[in-house]
Every structure is written in structure tokens, then in C-alpha cells.
Amino acid sequence: MEMDGFNENSWWTLPENFDDPLVTFIDEAQEEHIFGHEDLHLRSIELHSNTLIQLERWFTASGQTRVTVVGPIRAKRWLMDMIRCVGSQNVYHQARGQLMLHLVRNQPLINADFNASFSMLAYICGLICHISFAF
């Protein structure tokens, strides 16, 4: 999903990209880690993922930030996967999340990035399902 530039095929011109925004909640430390101090990396993450990200700080009583993402479905899911992995307690998932975060901060995502992420997710889900059915 490479950037189309400013034309009629740009992601923001397609109404379906604004359907079903994905929403998650993160704590202040995770927000700063992902988006940077004073949201330094927010714009590059949006540009490189072809999404629009809204951060609503202190949305909950516990001080969490609500993160709302709109854009193409594969990009939204990829970003949510990255956010979950970065915040995971599992060292493998954290490392994967860090690689994803570095990628989206530094270059536009392409179809190969989405495919790699989803094939890994399918592998993990398949492994979990296989283990569950083995018992």
C-alpha cells in the first residue's frame, strides 16, 4: 500500500476507509514510547501507514489515552498489532513490536510489510489453536 500522492485514489478519498475506526487504550508511558515526546513521531507514523491517528489523553479515570485509527483496514490492523506488541509482556512480542515501530517511523509501509505481519499473526494463531486442540 504505497502512497498514491494527491489524486483521486488517495486513501482519504475513499469513504470506506473511515468506516469502523479501530480504538485502543494505552498508558502515558506507552504513548510517549510509540508517538514520542509531544507526539514527535505521530505525523511520520500517519504518513508512513496511510492512516489518521487521533490521541485523546487522559480519556479514562486511570489516565489512559484513547487511540483511534482510521484508514485502510490492513494499515489499521497493522498499527493495532504494532501497539499491542510494543505493550506486550512477552519479550518476543515486544521485540517484534519494536521492529514494527522502527519500520513505520522511518519508511512508508508496503504490501510486503502487511503480508509479513499477517502471516506471522496467522502462524501464531495457528500455533495457539493447534496447542489448544492438542489438549
Rank of each mutant, 00 (worst) to 15 (best):
R77D: 01
R96E: 12
Q54H: 01
Q30M: 09
L40R: 13
Q64F: 05
N111L: 02
L109D: 11
G71W: 04
R66P: 07
R96C: 02
H93K: 10
S117E: 08
P72A: 10
I128L: 06
L40P: 00
D20R: 14
E31D: 06
S88G: 04
W78H: 12
I73Q: 15
L127K: 11
Q30K: 13
E28K: 05
D20T: 09
I83S: 02
L99F: 07
D19I: 01
V91C: 01
L47G: 06
R96L: 09
I83D: 08
S49Q: 13
E56V: 10
L47Q: 09
A116N: 15
P21H: 01
S62I: 12
I124M: 08
L40M: 02
I26E: 10
A112E: 15
Y123K: 12
V70M: 04
I53Y: 00
S88V: 02
T68D: 13
L109I: 15
D81T: 14
V86R: 14
T68F: 09
F25W: 12
R74T: 13
P108W: 00
Q64G: 05
I53K: 00
D81P: 00
E31I: 02
Q98A: 12
H41P: 02
M80G: 03
P21E: 06
I128C: 01
D19Q: 14
T24G: 11
R105S: 13
M82P: 09
V104Y: 01
V69P: 11
A116I: 06
M100K: 03
L121F: 06
E38Q: 09
